[in-house]
Write a protein that binds this DNA or RNA. Structure first.
Lengths: 337, 337
DNA sequence: TTGTAAGCGTTATCAG
DNA sequence: CTGATAACGCTTACAA
């Protein structure tokens, strides 16, 4: 049945033999700062090259209990920003010698299963870039000691055993609020994503607080069950239909671009309104589509690459951090507000 | 230094001891159709549950030389369709017990490196969903015996040692051509993606051939270096600026939706043209944005889920296929043409 | 700097 | 159906 196991099953022993050294020397040759003479290393590398040897990472992981593998747990694939994050993360990780196991959280209750999958491959860390990881799930996961490190990427978490690498949502949203107030909009409407139990309502809270503080009134808020342009589209229609002009918002501040795109589509194609003349819109993330001439969204860009680089230092353990890492991004002013 | 190795390091031996059986029996309990009595299995499972045991897949893979791991090699993250494919693929794979290693091909010449990464984790197969795998790369990869199976997903390949699972591009594009001709467009323009050496020019060729056959003239063709809406936007502007109205195409047939989106944006926002009144546009893939009210693209939907399911049967070896697998999708008629 | 012994946690295979 | 032996290919000591 299995006729594999032909060539390519070259082991360190084979190389050792070919190079006339011991297996352990072969090993050292492949380890960046091992104590090995330059000469030995070269002999080994030549033999390895000739035989087509590459270390078996499975065996290495088993023997060493570190795998140089991280799991990326994702749940909301409808948000286009996920594609950007996945690209950046895998790029930076791979450049630094880490491989990525992509785990699709199939549904709301799949978090434990997803984490289990990851742990069975002995990943060194699990990186969460989904939305459905509330603190209950995290505690359960950590309680079960499923993974060594749990890192929440691009989202806050209050869980003390978890490290989050994210943008300073409060600062970012305050900046957006100030910008919007600076343009003198009067009737704000905040469009939020899923209202889970964890701490990621920061954006909404920050906006609302800032507006209250400066204008003495509480902005209207609506939420959708997932970061999906289609859901945002429907939500806006549901919520704003049959509204008198003077009760219609003049600016819709969205928790992210996925929602902003849906909102803009609804505004233009359902309500037949112009943006920003009739209603302005702001987003968050600066997804690729935000720059396209149809949208030209005024949004906020997270420094994903820098965040990914921080992640790498966290993984390598250089930084014995347990504190959450906060970054500052920058507003990108375009035409939608 | 390492204070891990606390709990969770439960092995089959521990469970065996707790359950009063041998390690091998524990193992059998976790294997679907192993010869083990129902009673033994239950005892084992209870003990396992209590101790929180889960098989170490690293060790299993090492010992068995099958890993139940596949690598997904991706290179063009700017195409939104990739997100859809990744979601479907990981979903179907995981449901069937396969894990996914996501490998980002960092640049044009990274294919060998990416394949090497995958092979070092001893993946059972590498699935290619990028564009830069031309037949040279594939041959090299196979020559180096890097991976056991190489599967090209959603794209054709002529390489005989490779299996491709894709839509029947010829049939699909012929259907689109017929549709376009049926609407009586006269001046077609085909917008193609990267012109690599492999066989994926089928769409372009099919369209051109069909048009020639029925109309006796060769459609104009342009190509862009990557499936990126932004590139398509620029390409359309470069190519069509300063053209007299009667030389301007009345339908732009795009190799996929990523290009169609860029083309539509250029047509509307740069040339100030209406779609489909002034110029019609067709796409391919039916990405989520194709359905949004801004675009409403007439496109072609690939049966990704069925294709992913076929992939799984291919992986499990039930099908000792070496032939390429072709699927039929369906046209989705919307407003853009 | 280099070699050696003892595992890492499974599975294939064969004996009972 | 169950138990035992020998790998799988590497790493972590530690000794030479």
């Amino acid at each position: 049945m299995s006729d594999r196991k032909d060539a390519n099953e070259v082991t360190a022993d084979d190389v050792a033999q070919a190079a006339g050294v011991s297996r352990w020397t072969v090993n050292r040759a492949f380890k960046p700062n091992a104590s090995i003479s330059a000469k030995s290393r070269q002999t080994v590398m030549e033999a390895a090259e000739k035989l087509g040897y590459a270390p078996n990472l499975l065996a290495a992981s088993l023997a060493s209990d570190r795998s140089n593998l991280v799991a990326l747990l994702v749940d909301d694939f409808s948000n286009p920003h996920k594609l950007v994050m996945m690209e950046r993360l895998t790029r930076v990780l791979r450049k630094n010698g880490w491989d990525t196991l992509l785990v699709n959280m199939l549904d709301k209750d799949d978090a434990p299963g997803a984490l289990l999958s990851a742990s069975q491959r002995r990943v060194d860390a699990a990186i969460l870039i989904g939305v459905q990881f509330d603190d209950d799930v995290l505690s359960a996961a950590l309680g079960a000691r499923r993974v060594k490190k749990l890192i929440i990427f691009a989202r806050n978490s209050e869980n003390p055993d978890t490290i989050s690498i994210s943008v300073d949502d409060h600062a970012a949203m305050t900046e957006i609020a100030d910008y919007v107030m600076g343009r003198d909009y009067q009737r704000p409407f905040f469009l939020a994503g899923p209202q889970t139990k964890s701490a990621h309502l920061t954006r909404q809270e920050a906006f609302v607080a800032r507006w209250q503080e400066h204008r003495g009134m509480t902005p209207e808020v609506a939420d959708v069950p997932s970061y999906d342009p289609g859901m945002a589209y429907s939500a806006i229609i549901d919520r704003l239909s049959e509204r008198q002009p003077d009760a219609f918002p003049d600016v819709i501040v969205c928790e992210n671009d996925a929602l902003a795109i849906g909102a803009m589509d609804a505004l233009r194609h359902h309500f037949n309104l112009r943006i920003p003349e009739d209603v302005a819109v702001t987003g968050f993330d600066d997804v690729p589509a935000a720059a396209n001439p149809n949208y030209r969204i005024t949004t906020y860009r997270q420094p994903i690459t820098r965040m990914a680089e921080r992640l790498v230092t966290l993984l390598s353990g250089e930084l014995e951090q347990t504190e959450n890492q906060q970054f500052l991004g920058q507003m990108v002013i375009r035409n939608s507000a």
